[in-house]
Design a protein around this nucleic acid. Sequence first.
DNA 1: AATATTAATGAAAACCATTTTCAATAAACT
DNA 2: AGTTTATTGAAAATGGTTTTCATTAATATT
Lengths: 157, 157
Amino acid sequence: MPKRSNMGPPWWHGRFQGRGYRITVPREAILDVLNRTSKHLSAEDIYLEVHKIYPHIGLTTIYRTLELLVHIGLVFKFDFGDGRARFELSEGPKGIRHHHHLVCTNCGRVIDYTDFIDDEIELLGRTEKGLSKKFNFKITNHLIQFYGLCDGCRDKK
Amino acid sequence: MPKRSNMGPPWWHGRFQGRGYRITVPREAILDVLNRTSKHLSAEDIYLEVHKIYPHIGLTTIYRTLELLVHIGLVFKFDFGDGRARFELSEGPKGIRHHHHLVCTNCGRVIDYTDFIDDEIELLGRTEKGLSKKFNFKITNHLIQFYGLCDGCRDKK
DNA sequence: AATATTAATGAAAACCATTTTCAATAAACT
DNA sequence: AGTTTATTGAAAATGGTTTTCATTAATATT
């Protein structure tokens, strides 16, 4: 249930208006779902969640909206190698929920970690600046993932 | 043309034998293609390349072999967001060809960079050690990608 | 070297996440 | 309220990847 309460329009409205994009019920519902979770949701996960409240919203709209949200930088799309994309609200490196992933290549488990983020941020800051300059590339986000065998899988092999 | 010349069996044989995996013509051909390029090849790219020399080898075998190679850690699978996976021979952070990617979210261009790798290695070493200990995770590889707009795309928007 | 064992292969079909099509709907502007 | 045009939903299409199954060939055994 998207709760707008009484503190004016949600923070994301500005990202739509002025670019020709419209604020619609499905879009608000999807952002709301993403905003409430810290999990890595697939398009279908989001569909099922949205469906509970708005049964008429179709999976196609979920995909289209996610594509838009990724495009305007509100959402980040991940690939953990299981054939379906995952989505999270994107927060820059300074965001409170910013984290990276540890992916088990055997069972597919994904662990979020926030440790060492400070060191990483410092390095990433330098790297981004350097790359940005060298390649005239405007960097908007980054992805760091470690792969290996998780606690449960490392001994079984 | 897989060239084995005269210096004994290729370095990867040891990764197959002893684990019950067999050394076959398709597998050698695929590794050979990957070994000769520095591009990011899709399964189909590899198929077409292999097909020039071994026209009877099918796409199915390419997929199966790549899956195996990824599983035993010889190959790394990337996702650049265009709906098809890319493969590269995996080299650890110290490998001569080790690099990271800059991905343009507008046109899909991928730039390899090796700059700042030294700094990264130092940080990654620490991070890996810490994460490995904290989560009892055996880290075998990592992925670092920056996203943004490339030289050609940044102004057009 | 011949045979037995079983992993690997190829062709076709199946799979399934994602995208496209197109007519109907509903934001935002006048 | 009326107009414009972005957005939506349902169904069909797409296309990379996986599965099936009978055949072939790499390795082990004799």
